[in-house]
Protein backbone atom coordinates (compact mmCIF):
# COMPACT_ATOMS: atom_id res chain seq x y z
CA UNK A 1 0.00 0.00 0.00
CA UNK A 2 2.64 2.38 1.16
CA UNK A 3 4.78 1.31 -1.75
CA UNK A 4 2.03 1.96 -4.31
CA UNK A 5 1.37 5.50 -3.14
CA UNK A 6 4.85 6.83 -2.50
CA UNK A 7 6.94 4.77 -4.91
CA UNK A 8 10.58 4.74 -3.89
CA UNK A 9 10.26 7.93 -1.87
CA UNK A 10 9.04 6.33 1.33
CA UNK A 11 12.04 4.00 1.54
CA UNK A 12 14.35 6.79 0.39
CA UNK A 13 13.17 9.13 3.14
CA UNK A 14 13.78 6.50 5.80
CA UNK A 15 17.25 5.74 4.50
CA UNK A 16 18.12 9.43 4.28
CA UNK A 17 17.11 9.88 7.89
CA UNK A 18 19.20 6.87 8.90
CA UNK A 19 22.20 8.19 6.99
CA UNK A 20 21.81 11.56 8.68
CA UNK A 21 22.22 9.83 12.05
CA UNK A 22 25.32 7.96 10.88
CA UNK A 23 26.95 11.13 9.53
CA UNK A 24 26.09 13.03 12.71
CA UNK A 25 27.76 10.22 14.69
CA UNK A 26 30.90 10.71 12.61
CA UNK A 27 30.90 14.46 13.29
CA UNK A 28 30.35 13.83 17.01
CA UNK A 29 33.31 11.44 17.14
CA UNK A 30 35.72 13.70 15.27
CA UNK A 31 38.04 13.73 18.30
CA UNK A 32 37.63 10.18 19.61
CA UNK A 33 40.85 8.17 19.30
CA UNK A 34 40.47 5.03 17.22
CA UNK A 35 37.00 5.86 15.93
CA UNK A 36 36.31 4.58 12.42
CA UNK A 37 33.99 6.78 10.35
CA UNK A 38 31.07 4.90 8.83
CA UNK A 39 28.62 5.61 6.05
CA UNK A 40 25.77 3.99 4.18
CA UNK A 41 26.00 3.39 0.44
CA UNK A 42 22.67 5.02 -0.28
CA UNK A 43 22.09 3.56 -3.76
CA UNK A 44 22.92 0.01 -2.71
CA UNK A 45 20.77 0.28 0.43
CA UNK A 46 17.82 1.64 -1.55
CA UNK A 47 18.15 -1.14 -4.13
CA UNK A 48 18.26 -3.77 -1.39
CA UNK A 49 15.21 -2.29 0.30
CA UNK A 50 13.20 -2.08 -2.91
CA UNK A 51 14.04 -5.59 -4.10
CA UNK A 52 13.10 -7.05 -0.71
CA UNK A 53 9.81 -5.11 -0.84
CA UNK A 54 9.10 -6.44 -4.34
CA UNK A 55 9.76 -10.00 -3.27
CA UNK A 56 7.33 -9.57 -0.41
CA UNK A 57 9.94 -10.97 1.94
CA UNK A 58 10.33 -10.13 5.59
CA UNK A 59 11.10 -6.59 6.65
CA UNK A 60 14.48 -5.62 5.19
CA UNK A 61 17.46 -5.77 7.45
CA UNK A 62 19.42 -2.72 8.53
CA UNK A 63 21.31 -1.01 5.71
CA UNK A 64 24.87 -2.18 5.41
CA UNK A 65 27.43 0.04 7.12
CA UNK A 66 30.68 0.70 5.31
CA UNK A 67 33.85 2.12 6.78
CA UNK A 68 35.22 5.22 5.20
CA UNK A 69 38.69 5.05 3.71
CA UNK A 70 40.66 8.06 4.96
CA UNK A 71 42.56 10.27 2.56
CA UNK A 72 45.37 10.46 5.08
CA UNK A 73 45.47 8.12 8.06
CA UNK A 74 45.96 9.90 11.37
CA UNK A 75 48.19 8.84 14.23
CA UNK A 76 45.41 8.12 16.73
CA UNK A 77 43.54 5.79 14.37
CA UNK A 78 40.60 8.17 13.91
CA UNK A 79 39.36 8.21 10.30
CA UNK A 80 36.93 11.14 10.50
CA UNK A 81 37.68 13.97 8.09
CA UNK A 82 35.46 16.82 9.14
CA UNK A 83 35.25 18.52 5.75
CA UNK A 84 34.14 15.34 4.08
CA UNK A 85 31.57 14.55 6.71
CA UNK A 86 30.15 18.06 6.53
CA UNK A 87 29.81 17.92 2.77
CA UNK A 88 28.17 14.50 2.98
CA UNK A 89 25.84 15.76 5.70
CA UNK A 90 24.82 18.80 3.63
CA UNK A 91 24.27 16.67 0.52
CA UNK A 92 22.19 14.23 2.54
CA UNK A 93 20.11 17.00 4.10
CA UNK A 94 19.39 18.45 0.67
CA UNK A 95 18.38 15.06 -0.70
CA UNK A 96 16.17 14.50 2.35
CA UNK A 97 14.45 17.83 1.62
CA UNK A 98 13.93 16.88 -2.03
CA UNK A 99 12.49 13.46 -1.15
CA UNK A 100 10.26 15.07 1.44
CA UNK A 101 8.83 17.48 -1.12
CA UNK A 102 8.11 14.53 -3.47
CA UNK A 103 6.22 12.79 -0.68
CA UNK A 104 4.37 15.99 0.16
CA UNK A 105 3.39 16.42 -3.50
CA UNK A 106 1.99 12.90 -3.55
CA UNK A 107 0.02 13.53 -0.37
CA UNK A 108 -1.38 16.78 -1.78
CA UNK A 109 -2.44 15.08 -5.00
CA UNK A 110 -4.24 12.31 -3.16
CA UNK A 111 -5.87 14.71 -0.71
CA UNK A 112 -7.24 16.78 -3.58
CA UNK A 113 -8.52 13.69 -5.34
CA UNK A 114 -10.24 12.56 -2.13
CA UNK A 115 -11.86 15.94 -1.55
CA UNK A 116 -12.98 16.09 -5.18
CA UNK A 117 -11.89 19.67 -5.64
Amino acid sequence: MNEQIFGIHGAALELRSKRMGVLASNIANAATPGFKARDIDFNAALDARLSSNMGGGPHPAEPEMLFRRPTMPSLDGNTVELGREQVAFAENALAYSATLSFVQGKVNTITRALKGE
Binding site: K18, G21, N29
Partner: peptide, 10 residues
Protein backbone atom coordinates in the same frame (compact mmCIF):
# COMPACT_ATOMS: atom_id res chain seq x y z
CA UNK B 1 27.62 2.71 20.26
CA UNK B 2 23.87 2.41 20.63
CA UNK B 3 22.93 -0.79 18.83
CA UNK B 4 19.20 -0.06 18.80
CA UNK B 5 19.51 3.10 16.71
CA UNK B 6 22.95 2.59 15.13
CA UNK B 7 24.13 5.96 16.41
CA UNK B 8 27.46 6.36 18.11
CA UNK B 9 27.84 9.08 20.69
CA UNK B 10 30.85 10.26 22.61
Amino acid sequence: LDRASGLSGV
